[in-house]
Design a protein around this nucleic acid. Structure first.
Length: 968
RNA sequence: GCGGGGGUACCCGAGUGGCCAAAGGGGUCAGGUUCAGGGCCUGAUAGUUUAGCGCUUUCGUCGGUUCGAAUCCGGCCUCCCGCACCA
């Protein structure tokens, strides 16, 4: 009778629940094994992509549990953050697309939509109420979670924990205040990420350096990406066609473009930026301004290439190294009408000579001049000017060195100049910053153009701290990464990670304890929660108002005295101790699992913060990086409806089949592609085998043990095969190679078992075969139980067991039952059969009358064995021949030896690894009946030495493990 | 640009030094299952050749290491992913 996989799943989930099978507590007799998977952000329904994320650790934990570990798998809900808020707003506004996704894709009944207009209610709905939600989904997949420990990140207890976390970091100097440039929407009054944009995703913020050139009582703030060029300034450029204003910035009057003034308003939080007046640009041409670094007085001149849209609209001219500047000067020299218009004497321009500050291999003193000549650039409006600029900038950046003009900076490579100069000049307040978007337009979803804003008093986690980074690197080097290539990704992330803002002003979450206007942002409150899970079920019974930092200091860091803390907080001392012990028992975390896209943030922050807060040995030992999911070759996407919900698929296929295919498609860290048709096609076969084993289980529950019966060679063979597969599976599971483990247990073992069943059909009711079947069912059901636990419980109980299979011992490989000779013998028999069948087919011989096989001559075996012994690296045929000839048996066939040695030369290395000596004559004779049956005629086995019947002289072709064949 | 991972037959994909002309699936073709269709089953799916063999060509590309390379090394072409305030 076929098994109903859906019913079986429900049945056993209920039984586990009643038995509290997954409630894990510290134990003195068992070692703890704790894995955590990134808790989900429940903003919608759970689909198979999420399903895989939680099924992989579940299977690993079930395996470890059977190995005798005390396993822990807790789960929580990461609900802090803004996406839910955005969703609620959209539902409230009855946004068509959102409503469509909610009702059609997530299958939310229309009358429930009103619960989705408020963030907390929204979250609760998808966690607890929706049948398509996460909790329901995890339960339907049979994920073994200790639900007592469930939490939401807005729980008051959890908030106390986060407060403790940030207070602790701050005490260590790892949370600091500072300024930070962000992309910002002036309309929404909020920082915007890529997902908030309607165009301009991926556009960076670039920092221009600003030098303030004094000109009378105003300043000309020249913006540049190359601060070193301040040493080569010959004049200043403004564009007479642009609109300039006088703006008050930090107590100074700056002449900037009108656009720039607007941008500056967002960039100087310390003082208000105000436009004081329009500025008549024509009056300034011909006047001079003072270079703040060199002290030179340089003239202000008009140029058409200057744009008010970029940076300040004020540009310093460096004709030696900037083609545009050089051409603009040349343009003025050629045509002085513009100068005349502004009453500037031509001699001012004629007096401008380029000033060099960089030496570059392959160019003359003035690289910009060289390249303009070579590329035949004729004016600042010439498009080739851009090519010239690109060439010079690249060349100078990579190979240029500052010259003596730069004084103490000489010999510094240009590539390092920016960092060195800006650090130096900043100290002397000679230089400032102007932030600009690297490309445009960048538009918010609301339609407003995005600007750069400096956030003041922003709180940062100081990931740039070198001492901290060093500790993290040490920590990483002690950790295990699956797959192991990801270690380099983590190392790399540690390298580039800089200070990370950890607070924001909008959204759900925990307030920064010392600055409650700010809320800990969502990447900041999900880094060490794994530690909290070890005691969340205990702490949630306490009054959250009583929890303070000393409680957590005691619990996690063993600081303070339980009695004293208890007295002050009225948290019972035994609870404090229980929590401390619990953390102590479960930590370090064995593995933290998450998707590969989170390596460079969540997972890295988690390592950083564990390292900062917890002592060595109480952090995490490993990271498992999971791959992403595709559906029918395309990215899964709720908004496109390209998802399969766990609710649906578990209901139609049953939990075990979903689990089986999620785990079997690819290894955990690889991206998987769910193809429904392929799954359905192969599912039948998979289900059939489970049903078959179930039948067997029912029929063999009182069979004898294999030790109590006489075993024939076929029996020994299958026992050997079973144990070999088991060995492979154990190794694979330990390495997180779940797919490999399934291949070994399910495919290899079941294929071998089917062969065995076929071969033993004539004696299928003997007590020996029944004992073997029982042995197989007993081992197999336990070995596949981590993958398909529900159906395995069914089979396990059919075998007459009263306890759960999830609590059964992992079937260890019985090394003594692995038998190379037996396996080789069977291989030999199968080779002979398939060879004979092959020949018949090719020759069209439908009616085989006689089959004779000639096993290899003894001397050939001797030669092969000797050759294997002599060959360590290189095959030396001469040496082999002379050596084997010493043996009289071989010498008797001396004339054939050289040819044979040549023949085996090719395959000696492969033979070496696989050859096990078997008595071919005996094996084939013993199996002659079986072979005869398979090929449909009588089989005669002859020795290769002196065959009694060999009309075509085939016997001499026999090789070890490859008998010669004669057919009639 | 920086960093990570890839490119395997008609397609998807396994495969990390020799049992590899290369698993598995899909597709296609042929045959069967005696109404059609579906489903299911069997076989074929680089070429040539053959009494199981063998040979030739093939794993992005060009070279290298090796007795031996899809697998190791180097260059090149090319695709995907991440690069921060976003969960």
């Amino acid at each position: 009778m076929a098994i109903d996989f859906v019913k079986v799943a429900v049945k056993w989930q209920e039984k586990w629940k009643n038995a509290r099978a997954f409630e894990s507590d510290p134990s003195s007799s068992k070692e703890g094994y704790y894995i955590q998977t990134a808790y989900p952000y429940p903003s919608g329904a759970m689909h198979i992509g999420h399903g895989r994320t939680y099924t992989v650790p579940d299977a690993i934990l079930r395996f470890r549990r059977m190995q005798g570990f005390n396993t822990l798998y807790p789960m929580g809900w990461h609900v802090t953050g803004t996406p839910v808020i955005a969703q609620c707003e959209k539902v409230a506004l009855k946004d068509k697309k959102t409503i469509d996704i909610m009702t059609r894709v997530f299958k939310i009944p229309k009358q429930d939509l009103k619960m989705l207009t408020e963030p907390v209610s929204f979250v609760n709905y998808f966690v607890d109420k929706a049948s398509t939600g996460y909790k329901a989904g995890m339960k339907k997949l049979g994920i073994g979670i200790d639900w007592r420990r469930e939490l939401k990140t807005i729980d008051p207890h959890y908030s106390k924990f986060i407060s403790w976390q940030y207070n602790t970091l701050r005490k260590k100097g790892l949370v600091i205040a500072g300024k930070f440039p962000v992309r910002y929407c002036p309309h929404d009054k909020n920082a915007v990420g890529d997902h908030d944009l309607s165009e301009g995703e991926g556009v960076d913020i670039v920092e221009y350096m600003v030098y303030r050139f004094r000109c009378g009582d105003v300043f000309l703030p020249a913006a540049t990406l190359r601060p070193e060029t301040v040493f080569g300034v010959t004049n200043m450029w403004l564009n007479p066609k642009e609109d300039y204003v006088v703006a008050s910035v930090s107590g100074e009057d700056w002449v900037v473009s009108r656009t720039a003034a607007e941008k500056l308003k967002h960039q100087h939080p310390e003082s208000e930026v105000k436009v004081k007046s329009d500025f008549d640009v024509s009056k300034i041409f011909g006047k001079t301004c003072r270079n703040p670094v060199t002290g030179d007085e340089v003239p202000v001149l008009p140029a058409s290439f200057v744009s008010g849209e970029f940076a300040t609209g004020v540009v310093m001219s460096v004709p030696a190294h900037a083609p545009l500047d050089f051409m603009a000067v040349e343009d003025l020299k050629k045509d002085s009408s513009l100068l005349e218009k502004f009453g500037v004497d031509k001699s001012v321009v004629l007096g401008i000579k380029p000033v060099a500050l960089i030496k570059v291999e392959g160019y003359g003193e003035f690289p910009a001049v060289d390249v303009c000549m070579r590329l035949k650039v004729f004016s600042q409006d010439d498009p080739r000017c851009e090519d010239a600029t690109n060439e010079i900038y690249k060349k100078e950046f990579h190979t240029g060195v500052l010259n003596e003009r730069t004084g103490k900076f000489r010999d510094i490579p240009v590539s390092k100049a920016k960092a060195v100069l800006s650090a130096e000049f900043r100290k002397e307040n000679l230089i400032g910053s102007f932030f600009e978007l690297s490309a445009r337009p960048v538009t918010c979803r609301c339609g407003t153009e995005v600007v750069v804003k400096i956030l003041d008093n922003q709180w940062f986690v100081k990931y740039s701290d070198e001492k901290w980074k060093k500790e993290v690197r040490d920590q990483i080097s002690s950790m295990q990464f699956v797959p192991k290539d990801f270690k380099s990704s983590f190392d790399y992330t540690v390298g580039w990670l800089e200070n990370k803002p950890c607070a924001r002003q909008k959204g759900l979450g925990t307030p920064i304890p010392w600055d409650p206007d700010w809320i800990v942002e969502p990447l900041g409150d999900s880094t060490i929660y794994m530690a909290y899970f070890t005691l969340s079920h205990i702490v949630k019974e306490l009054d959250s108002g009583k929890l303070d930092d000393t409680v957590f200091d005691f619990v996690f860091l063993k600081k303070g005295d339980a009695g004293e803390i208890s007295k002050r907080t009225s948290v019972p001392a035994e609870k404090l101790l229980e929590m401390q012990e619990s953390f102590d028992y479960w930590y370090p975390l064995r593995f933290n699992c998450s998707a590969n896209e989170l390596v460079q943030n969540h997972m890295s922050y988690s390592i950083f913060q564990h390292t900062a807060i917890f002592p060595k040995g109480k952090r995490q030992n490993g990271e498992l990086v999971l791959g992403m999911g595709l559906l029918e070759g395309k990215k899964m996407s709720s908004s496109k409806g390209n998802v399969i919900l766990i609710d649906d698929i578990a209901g139609s296929m049953g939990a075990d089949m979903v689990r089986f295919f999620l785990l079997n498609m690819v290894e955990p860290w690889q991206d998987f592609d769910w193809r429904q048709r392929a799954v359905e096609k192969s599912m039948r076969g998979v289900q059939a085998f489970f049903s078959e084993v179930h039948e067997i289980a029912l029929s063999v529950s009182d069979a004898k043990k294999i030790a109590e019966v006489d075993l024939e060679s076929d029996d020994l063979w299958i026992l050997s095969k079973i144990n070999r597969s088991l060995k492979n599976a154990t190794v694979a599971f330990e390495a997180f190679e779940v797919r490999k483990a399934i291949m070994s247990v399910f495919f290899d073992m079941s294929r071998d078992f089917r062969i065995y069943m076929e071969k033993s059909v004539s004696r299928s009711d003997t007590e020996t075969v029944l004992a073997v079947k029982r042995y197989f069912a007993d081992v197999w059901v336990r070995a596949i139980a981590p993958v398909t636990p529900h159906v395995c419980e069914e089979i396990w109980s059919a075998l007459g067991n009263d306890s759960f299979v999830i609590d059964a011992a992992w079937p260890e490989c019985e090394q003594g039952l692995i038998n190379d000779a037996i396996e080789k013998s069977v291989e030999l028999v199968e080779t002979v059969i398939s060879d004979i069948k092959n020949i018949c087919e090719i020759t069209g011989n439908q009616n085989l009358k006689k089959a004779v096989v000639f096993v290899s001559q003894k001397w050939k075996w001797l030669v092969v064995k000797e050759a294997m012994k002599l060959t360590t690296e290189k095959f030396d045929s001469g040496k082999v021949i002379s050596e084997v000839m010493k043996n009289p048996v071989v010498r008797a066939n001396g004339n054939q030896v050289p040819k044979f040695v040549q023949l085996i030369a090719k395959s000696i290395h492969e033979l070496k690894e696989t050859l096990v000596e078997v008595d071919e004559f005996e094996v084939l004779s013993g199996q002659a009946d079986y072979i005869s049956e398979q090929i449909g005629c009588k089989l005669i086995v002859e020795s290769g030495e002196n065959p009694s019947f060999d009309p075509l002289g085939k016997a001499k072709n026999a090789k070890p493990m490859k008998p010669a064949i004669y057919l009639e």
